Simulated assay, not measured.
Amino acid sequence: MNAPRRNMMLADALAQVGAVGLFMFSILAAVPKSLRHYRETVRQVWFVGAMSLVIIMTCGLFVGMVLSLQLYYVLTNFGGTAALGTVVALSMFRELGPVVTALLFAGRAGTSMTAEIGLMRATDQLSAMEMMAVDPMSYVVAPRFLAGILAMPLLVCIFNALGLLGAHLVGVSWLGLDNGTFWGNMTSTVEVWSDLLNGVWKSAAFGAVIALIATFQG
């Protein structure tokens, strides 16, 4: 690839990043006005959150089961099966929960937001809103952006809860680990502020990024 073509591709990439940045500032400026349309925000939270529960719960359960099964046999080599609940909980709360939920959220809710806004643009619905003195940024885009930020932490909590349930089913009910040991070591090691809430903040950031990209592409 020659140098002019590489420079052109780099310039296009930088222009795209700049456009996304300006679009984000437009959304943030429209957020105060979008609070008047709180019902639309609530509807979007239901659409991107509640409608994604089935896939989130299913994947959370099986991720917890597989993680517990694999870690049990690894910890057996070191005589540390008592730490199974702790390792699963820390893995889910810190990394796996936010990351896997974000991937599922982008695949289901992100694509639906992009398609919906793209259809509204193709059918000139956004232009019609502007003609009726309705700001599309505050009525269409900002509620979806806020819904992504609000729904992601809730979905991550549900994903983590089902993951721990799956880990308990495998570790305690199937492999015979003591129930008190499973929960006791977990509750004594996992901290709310440093482990649980860090994952929640991370999930909110993922939700903002996914909603920003989805609405921008739409």
Score class of each variant (00 low, 15 high):
M1L: 07
P4F: 11
P4C: 04
N7G: 12
M8F: 09
L10K: 05
Q16C: 13
V17A: 15
F25R: 15
A29F: 08
A29K: 14
V31S: 07
R36S: 13
E40H: 15
T41R: 11
M51S: 10
V54D: 13
I55V: 11
T58H: 15
L61H: 04
V66H: 06
V66N: 02
L71E: 03
L75Q: 05
N77H: 05
A83H: 07
T86L: 11
A89L: 10
S91N: 08
G97A: 12
P98E: 00
V99A: 10
L103I: 04
L103S: 03
F105P: 00
F105C: 00
F105H: 00
G107L: 04
R108I: 09
G110T: 06
M113F: 05
I117M: 07
G118H: 11
L119Y: 10
R121D: 02
D124H: 02
D124F: 14
S127L: 15
S127E: 07
A128W: 04
A128D: 05
E130S: 12
E130D: 11
V134Y: 07
D135I: 02
Y139W: 11
V141W: 01
V141F: 02
V141C: 03
A142C: 01
R144K: 13
R144C: 03
F145C: 09
I149H: 04
I149Y: 02
L150G: 10
A151Q: 04
P153Y: 12
P153F: 05
N160S: 11
L162R: 03
G166I: 01
H168M: 06
L169S: 10
L169C: 13
G171P: 06
W174C: 14
W174H: 14
T181I: 10
T181R: 02
F182T: 07
G184N: 08
N185R: 07
T189P: 05
T189M: 09
V190Q: 04
W193D: 14
N198D: 07
N198Y: 15
V200S: 01
W201V: 09
S203I: 00
S203K: 13
L212Y: 00
L212V: 01
G218V: 04
